[in-house]
Design a binder for these strands. Structure first.
Lengths: 342, 342
DNA sequence: CTGAAAGCGCTTACAG
DNA sequence: CTGAAAGCGCTTACAG
C-alpha cells in the first residue's frame, strides 16, 4: 500500500563512498583494500565513511575484475547426512583459515543432479572444487566436465581411484574394527556396506576381508551386504542378517547410521546388543556415544581430511600427487561389543 | 614440473563462443538466453557450439549487468544440527522451484560470526535472506544491518517477534505434546528447553505451561530447564531431573536431540523408558523412529515452512504481513510414552 | 532476426 | 600518496 520507500533499494557502491569522501573511485578502492590498505588522512576518511554507511563491496564486480573469486565449491551428497555436514563444516573452517570461502551444493548422489548443480558453482567461477561424491564406477559426468575444462579439484572421503584425494585409511579402519571383534572371540562376523560405487565402503570391506582372512575366518556371501548409508538400510539388512539360519554374532558397518539401523533391528527382535550381537560402526558421529548401547566406532578426523583436501586443491602446482593423502582412523571403544554368547 | 599446460586455464567466454559461431556477442547472448532464446539457424549454431565446448556463462558478469543475482542467502546456526540441515535442504528445493538458488552460511548461534559471515552473503548481493537464527533478545547486529539497508528477509523456525516469519505453531505443538502426557495420567511433567533467546523453545514452553494450567497441574521451577539444543545438554538436564527428590514421571523436550539425551541419561541410570519415565520430543527427525525406544515427537512440516519463508521473502510487495505464517505441527505417537508407574 | 554501443561495480597498471 | 583510464564478461535498449 505504502508508496513511499524509506529504505534504500540499491546497495551503496564504491562511487557513492568516493563521492561522500570527496576522493576518486581509485583512491577509495585502495583505502578499502583488504591486503594493502593505503595510509593517510583521506584514506582514513574513506574508511570511516564506509563503516558508517555499512558499505559492503560488491564481490561479483570485484571478482570479475580480479579474475578470481576466492570461492571453493563443495559438492556433497546430502547435508542431512551427519558425516557430510561435518566434512562440510570442516571445509568451511579450513577454507576460511586459508582466505577462501566455501559454497556448497548437494546432489543426493544423483549424477544428473550433480551435473546440474555443479554447473551452478562453475557459473560462479569457483577457484576449485572439493568433492565428497566420487564414484568408482566412472558414472560422474560432472567430474569429467571438470577434468575437460581443467578446473582444479580434490576428492575427500571417497575417491574415484585416480583423482587427487584426501582420505582416511579405510582399509586400516576396517581392519581395526574387524580385529576388535575377532579379539573378542567372534568368528561369524557380517559386513554391512554402503553403495557399491563408494570407495569408502569398498575399502572398509577390504579391511574387513583381510582381517578375516588373516584370522583364518571364512566370509560366506550371506554375511556381506550393500545398500546405501541410511538408517533404514541398516534396519533392513539387520533383519535379513537376523533371519539367517546361522545368525552372525557380530556386525561391522560402513557407517554409524547403518549401525544404528542394525542395532534397532536387533533390539526390536529381542536380540540383546552386545550380549547376542556385537556391533561396530564407522565415522564416530556425535550420537554414537549417546545410543542406548553406546556404539563402538571408528573415528574419522574430519579436520585433517578437510585440511588435506584444501592443500591438495590449492597446491595445484602443475603436477598433483598420484597417491591419495591418508589420515589415520582410530577405534573408539564403547559398549556395543562383547564376547559372543555360547 | 611439467611446464606444458594442456588444459585451458581460463574458462570460455561469450566472446569465444560468438567468434567460434561467427556472430556478434549480442547475438550469441540472445541465442543462449534462458527465458526468451532467439530462433533461427545462426542461433542454433551458437547453442550447438556452446554445448560442445561446455560453455557455462559467468554468473558474476551476468548478475552484475542484470542487477540481480537470483540468490537467496540462508543463515543457519549449524548444519550438523539435523533440523537445520533439513530446513536448509527444503529451502534449496523450494527456491529452485521458484527459479532461485540458495547460498548458506552457518553462525554457531554467535552474533559476531553471523555478522561476519552474513556480510559475505551481502557482498554477493543475494536478493534476500532466510534466517533461522532469529533471537528475541535483540542481540543480532546482522539483522539490524539488513533492516538498515532495506534488504528483504524472512525468518523461519524462530522469530524475533517483529520480522516477517514462517513458523510452526509452537504453542499448539507444546500443547499437543503435553496433553498427550497428561492424558496418559502424568501429573509431574518436566520441560527441557533450548536457549532462552529462541522463540521456538519459548513457545513450546508456553504451550506446555498452558496445557499444565488447564489441567490444574503445578509447574514448580525445578521442572523447567533451559540450555542449548544439543544431545549433551539433554543428558545433563536429564541427570539433574533424575536426581530430584520427587522425580518427574514424564519429560517434554524442545527438540529430539534433547530427548535423546534425556533418554540416554535415564537408561544409564537404570530408569526404564517409558515404564518409569515417559518422553516426548520435538521436530520428529529421522532417527526418532529408530531409537531403542522409538520416540514420540511433534512433527514439523519443513517443506511448508520453507515455502512460506520464500513466499514471504519474495512477496515483498511494499508491505509485509505483521502476523507470522503458521504451519500446523502434529503429534507422531510412538513408544516413549506410557502411563506413570505407581 | 542482426550488430554496435553502453554500462553494471569493481581493481589495477600507468603516470604524476 | 593521488586521479584518469581501461577492462573483467556479460545483457539490453537502440537502430536497422
Amino acid at each position: 500500500m505504502s508508496t513511499d520507500d524509506p529504505k534504500p533499494r540499491r546497495a551503496l557502491t564504491l562511487n557513492d563512498i568516493a563521492a561522500l569522501a570527496g576522493v576518486s573511485r581509485s583512491a577509495a578502492s585502495r583505502a578499502l583494500d583488504r591486503k594493502a590498505p593505503v595510509k593517510g588522512p583521506k584514506a582514513d576518511r574513506v574508511r570511516q565513511i564506509a563503516a558508517e554507511h555499512g558499505y559492503v563491496p560488491n564481490a561479483w564486480a570485484a571478482n570479475l575484475r580480479r579474475q578470481r573469486t576466492g570461492l571453493i565449491g563443495v559438492v556433497v551428497s546430502r547435508l542431512t547426512d551427519t558425516p557430510m555436514a561435518m566434512i562440510y563444516e570442516a571445509v568451511v573452517e579450513q577454507a576460511a583459515a586459508r582466505g577462501y570461502q566455501a559454497a556448497v551444493v548437494s546432489t543426493d548422489d544423483d549424477p544428473r543432479k550433480a551435473l546440474e548443480r555443479g554447473r551452478l558453482l562453475l557459473a560462479q567461477r569457483v577457484d576449485g572444487f572439493v568433492l565428497t561424491t566420487a564414484r568408482t564406477d566412472g558414472a560422474d559426468p560432472f567430474l569429467l566436465e571438470l577434468q575437460e575444462q581443467g578446473v582444479p579439484y580434490s576428492l575427500v572421503m571417497r575417491t574415484d581411484g585416480t583423482g587427487p584425494a584426501a582420505l582416511t585409511d579405510d582399509v586400516a579402519g576396517g581392519g581395526l574394527a574387524t580385529r576388535h571383534l575377532i579379539e573378542h572371540g567372534h568368528r561369524r562376523i557380517a559386513y554391512v556396506g554402503g553403495p557399491l560405487y563408494a570407495s569408502s565402503s569398498q575399502n572398509r570391506e577390504a579391511g574387513y576381508r583381510r582381517a578375516m582372512e588373516e584370522a583364518g575366518l571364512p566370509v560366506p556371501p550371506e554375511l556381506v551386504h550393500h545398500s546405501d548409508f541410511s538408517i533404514d538400510a541398516g534396519v533392513d539388512v539387520g533383519r535379513r542378517l537376523l533371519a539367517l539360519a546361522d545368525v552372525p554374532t557380530a556386525v561391522f558397518t560402513a557407517n554409524d547410521s547403518l549401525a544404528i539401523g542394525v542395532m534397532f533391528a536387533a533390539q526390536r527382535a529381542g536380540v540383546d546388543v552386545p550380549g547376542r550381537l556385537s556391533i561396530v560402526g564407522y565415522t564416530d558421529t556425535p550420537i554414537a556415544a549417546r545410543l542406548s548401547v553406546p556404539l563402538t566406532s571408528v573415528n574419522v578426523p574430519f579436520d585433517a581430511l578437510a585440511a588435506d583436501a584444501l592443500d591438495l586443491l590449492l597446491a595445484d602446482g602443475g603436477d598433483r600427487p598420484a597417491a591419495p593423502r591418508l589420515s589415520d582412523p582410530s577405534l573408539v571403544v564403547r559398549d556395543s561389543v562383547a564376547a559372543p554368547h555360547r
